[in-house]
C-alpha cells in the first residue's frame, strides 16, 4: 500500500475534488493493498449526512452512505422493492454488507483476476498496456458488452436490481447537483475501459433515487460457484406484471455477464403483450443473447443465462 494522506470531509462540498473518496472501504482498501489503487490522498466521507432513506416522489431517496445491510432490511425496500433487498442480501457477507455503502457499491471495481494483479497488463488499470484476461482464465468474464480491450464484468448485485428498478444517481459537483439515470451512469469499455462511469473528476454520489415501485412480482436470482460469498456467474433481476394472461410489463436486468449491470429494453418489448410461454421466453432470450460472445472459460454463461432467464420469467408469471 502506497503511503497516502488522509482527510475527513466535514460536508459534501468539502469532499468534492478533495481526493479519493473512501466510505466503507470494503473494495478500495483491498485494491490499495494490492497496489491497484494508489491514491495520494484519501477523503473519508463517513461522517457526512448521507445515511438517510427518505420517501421521495412516490419512491425513495437512498443516501449514498446507507449501508447495504440497512438498505436490505428497510421496511419500504422489503415491501416495494423486494428485488433490491434480495440482491443486496445475495452479495458479499454480513460483515461486508455492514460496511459497504450504497454509493460505494455502485463504484466497486471488477473482480477480474488480471485487473487485481499489478504484474499483469490491464487496460482498465493501465490504459494501453493490453488485456491479459483475453486468452487467460475467463470464468468471471463478460459475454455481453465487452470490447477487444476489456472483457471484465461489473461485480455488483445491488446495481443490477437498481438497473431493473430504473434508479437514478444523484451527483454533486462543483457546478451543482445533477441526476443521471443508472442506465446512462455506466459506460461500456470500448477502447477506454479505465473510464467506467460518467462521473467527472471531483464529483460525489450523494444518493440513489428509486422511482415509484412498478406493479408485478419481483425477484433476484443469483447463480454462483458456491452457495454464498461468491460473485455472480449470472444473475437476473426481474419485475414482471401479468394481466389477463399476458405479460403487461417486464423490467429485467442482468449481472455477471457484462461490464455494467445489463439491461436491454428490446428484451422487455419482446415480452410485453405476450403470453408467458416457453416460446415467448426463448424469443426474448434470443434477443438478449444476440451477439453474446464467450471467451472460452465463460462460454457456459450463454446457455446458463438463457436457462436462468427463462426460470425467472416462469417464476414471476406462473399463476399470475
Amino acid at each position: 500500500m502506497k503511503p497516502f494522506d488522509y482527510a475527513r470531509a466535514q460536508d459534501v462540498s468539502g469532499a468534492l475534488d478533495a481526493g479519493k473518496i473512501i466510505a466503507g472501504g470494503t473494495n478500495l482498501l483491498d485494491l490499495m493493498k494490492l497496489g491497484v489503487e494508489t491514491p495520494e490522498r484519501v477523503v473519508d466521507i463517513t461522517r457526512l449526512d448521507l445515511k438517510r432513506i427518505e420517501d421521495h416522489e412516490g419512491g425513495l431517496r437512498i443516501g449514498a452512505l446507507v449501508s447495504n445491510s440497512d438498505l436490505a432490511v428497510d421496511d419500504r425496500v422489503r415491501r416495494n422493492y423486494e428485488v433490491l433487498s434480495r440482491a443486496l442480501l445475495s452479495g458479499a457477507s454480513g460483515q461486508l454488507r455492514n460496511m459497504a455503502t450504497t454509493g460505494g457499491n455502485l463504484l466497486q471495481r471488477t473482480r477480474c483476476y488480471y485487473f487485481q494483479d499489478v504484474a499483469s497488463p490491464c487496460n482498465k488499470r493501465e490504459p494501453g498496456s493490453g488485456c491479459r484476461a483475453k486468452g487467460g482464465a475467463t470464468r468471471l468474464h463478460a459475454i455481453l458488452g465487452a470490447s477487444e480491450h476489456c472483457i471484465a464484468t461489473h461485480p455488483s448485485d445491488m446495481a443490477v436490481a437498481m438497473q431493473a428498478l430504473d434508479a437514478s444517481v444523484e451527483i454533486e459537483g462543483a457546478e451543482g447537483t445533477r441526476t443521471v439515470p443508472l442506465a446512462e451512469f455506466y459506460v461500456l469499455p470500448g477502447d477506454r475501459p479505465d473510464i467506467e462511469t460518467v462521473l467527472k473528476p471531483g464529483e460525489l454520489i450523494t444518493a440513489v433515487i428509486l422511482p415509484a415501485p412498478l406493479p408485478g412480482r419481483q425477484t433476484y436470482r443469483k447463480v454462483r460457484d458456491r452457495a454464498s460469498y461468491a460473485f455472480a456467474l449470472v444473475s437476473v433481476a426481474g419485475i414482471v406484471s401479468v394481466k389477463d394472461g399476458v405479460i403487461e410489463q417486464a423490467a429485467l436486468a442482468f449481472g455477471g455477464v457484462a461490464p455494467r449491470p445489463w439491461r436491454n429494453l428490446e428484451v422487455e418489448t419482446a415480452l410485453a403483450g405476450r403470453e408467458p410461454t416457453r416460446e415467448t421466453f426463448d424469443a426474448a432470450a434470443d434477443i438478449l443473447l444476440a451477439g453474446a460472445e464467450g471467451q472460452g472459460g465463460n462460454d457456459f454463461k450463454i446457455p446458463l443465462l438463457r436457462r436462468t432467464f427463462r426460470a425467472v420469467l416462469g417464476e414471476l408469471t406462473q399463476g399470475a
Binding site: 483476476y113 482464465a137 468471471l140 458456491r226 452457495a227 454464498s228 460469498y229 461468491a230
Partner: peptide
C-alpha cells in the same frame, strides 16, 4: 501463475455449502 490467489476466488466451502 496462480490466478485465484485469495479466499474470495479460491472457493472453499462456506457455511451455506
Amino acid at each position: 501463475h496462480i490466478v485465484n490467489r485469495d479466499l474470495a476466488e479460491y472457493h472453499l466451502p462456506v457455511n451455506l455449502d
